[in-house]
Amino acid sequence: MKVFITLLALAVASAAAAPKTAVVHPKDLPVSDNKIEGRITNGYPAYEGKAPYTVGLGFNGWWCGGSIIGNTWVLTASHCTGGDSVTVYFGATWRTNAQFTHYVSSNNFIDHWVDDIALIRIPHVDFWHMVNKVELPSYGQRDDQFQDSWAVACGWGRTSDGNQPDWMQCVDLQVISNNECASVYGNSIVNTNIICVRVSDGKSTCSGDSGGPLVSHDGNKLIGVTNWVSSSGCMAGHPSGFQRVTHHLDWIRDNTGISY
């Protein structure tokens, strides 16, 4: 009887810990007439210069986002950095009308190889109100979980009607605890390198802007790099996941010399 009760308790615990849905990279989401897949739904158009740190990354056959973190560095997701080159679009509120572009070959890509984060070395860019860096969290913030704080994500991924927008869209999102996120995806997906945001009222990050920034309202710090959404779809109401930048401060410093 005791053995049966123990086995039953283990079965219940395993069932409770089982993930409710799988994850998928935003850039790999299909767009169909039957399932709405939108990166930023119920968001708002960005005014010029709102997110001067956001860059568009035009790879051969797909589009990603990235963040300027220094005069010669962009941070993005490693699942974006395939192919032999990328065109980087700087200061483009209107997606195809950048202030300028740079062509960068793949020997300037630095992938983490373990976690889904990557660096791109770029030609030196000067900063002004349309093209500027976003600061990383400081080392003093490396244990900050940012739980319940608000952040903004901006980019040119597909909107709720399935179209690729020309004008940059932004959405404000609230960070949730990893425990809440793991209750949906499981602990094997949501570990210490991940930060999640709540998806409510149809507001979400999604198709077309893998690698894009999540920037805190308080202090304007880059706290996340867009990684994945629910395989059930961006409108399913499940949390979205980002690489947690504070988890990678040493790696970023070791490769770029940038730290605060």
Rank of each mutant, 00 (worst) to 15 (best):
D126N: 12
D126T: 13
D126L: 08
F127M: 07
F127P: 02
F127Y: 12
W128Y: 14
W128M: 07
W128P: 04
H129N: 11
H129T: 12
M130C: 05
M130F: 15
V131D: 03
V131M: 03
K133D: 04
K133T: 13
V134W: 10
V134P: 10
E135P: 01
E135I: 01
E135N: 10
L136K: 03
L136P: 04
L136V: 09
L136R: 05
L136F: 02
P137A: 00
P137Y: 00
P137G: 00
P137H: 00
P137F: 02
P137M: 02
P137D: 03
Y139W: 14
Y139M: 02
G140K: 13
Q141P: 00
R142S: 06
R142A: 03
R142I: 07
D143C: 12
D143S: 13
D143T: 11
D143F: 12
D144I: 01
D144C: 02
D144F: 04
Q145S: 14
F146W: 12
F146A: 01
F146V: 01
Q147E: 14
Q147N: 15
D148M: 06
S149Y: 08
S149H: 03
S149R: 00
S149K: 09
W150H: 13
A151N: 03
A151Q: 13
V152Y: 06
V152I: 15
V152R: 14
V152E: 08
A153M: 03
A153W: 08
C154L: 10
G155Y: 07
G155W: 11
G155H: 06
G155C: 09
W156R: 15
W156M: 08
G157S: 07
G157H: 09
R158K: 14
R158M: 10
R158V: 03
T159S: 05
T159K: 06
T159Y: 05
S160W: 08
